[in-house]
């Protein structure tokens, strides 16, 4: 535990990377997931089929394998997917190819679960809403954009939050693939200070618990505020 308390900067910087990974991939996966759910419930049968196949494949693949793919596989086939063109430095944080590959893997993986969460939300919108929207002559895009999705997003807050919490915990996989975020930092502390392993584990675990509780609290507040009467 002293090991962590003696170098709080390392501890905080590591969790900084965790938060960055979470925020960037969170936004991307919500956008991608929304696109996927539109394809999935839309009237074009082939788009819907394609989305289903994509989701089935990605959801059933372990995240580690997806990370491996973007670390070792994809760069051999596509130059761009080396992500060597990404080199951003903000303050003490370096966002390089490792960070980008992690964001891509996390976003692709999470977007499937976001899609499923939103679909659960769409299913929770009463049938009459869509029927009424159609009755006043809205096209599919209007039905979705103006009537169903705004309600679906509200109903989807709890499952969406569960998905995002899972994403937050999954950012730890990036630690295995070159990003020095909390899990990687914890492993390096664990290696360096053999006598303090339990304390180190508890400190880092509590860091995650705090982050999870924050996301969960935000979701609970949003859910209450947006609840459909």
């Amino acid at each position: 535990m002293n090991a962590v308390l003696d170098s709080p900067d390392l501890f905080l910087k590591a969790f900084g990377y965790t938060v960055f990974l979470f925020l960037v991939s969170g936004v991307i996966s919500v956008v991608l997931g929304t696109l996927l759910v539109a394809m999935r419930v839309g009237p074009v049968a082939i788009l819907s089929r394609a989305a289903t196949v994509y989701i089935t494949v990605v959801r059933n693949t372990p995240l580690v394998i997806i990370f491996l793919f973007f670390q070792l596989g994809a760069p051999k086939v596509f130059q761009t997917l080396r992500f060597s063109w990404v080199d951003i430095h903000i303050g003490p944080y370096d966002f390089t190819s490792f960070f980008t590959a992690a964001v891509v893997a996390l976003s692709l993986y999470t977007s499937c679960f976001v899609c499923e969460a939103l679909r659960a939300g769409i299913n929770a919108v009463p049938l009459g809403q869509a029927e009424a929207a159609r009755a006043i002559g809205l096209p599919f895009s209007g039905v979705m954009r103006q009537v169903v999705l705004p309600q679906a997003f509200r109903a989807a807050v709890p499952p969406l939050a569960s998905t995002l919490i899972a994403l937050l915990k999954n950012t730890s996989v990036a630690g295995v693939f070159g990003v020095i975020e909390a899990a990687a930092q914890m492993k390096s502390f664990t290696n360096d200070f053999a006598s303090e392993r339990t304390g180190i584990f508890i400190m880092f675990a509590l860091g995650y618990v705090v982050l999870v509780e924050i996301v969960s609290a935000v979701a609970t507040v949003l859910e209450r505020r947006w609840r459909i009467a």
Binding site: G175, A183, M186, T190, A194, F201
Partner: peptide, 13 residues
């Protein structure tokens, strides 16, 4: 709330 990776590292070491 704790990531499985953290648990694995802790259990392993």
């Amino acid at each position: 709330a704790v990531p499985v990776i953290l648990l694995i590292v802790f259990c392993f070491y």
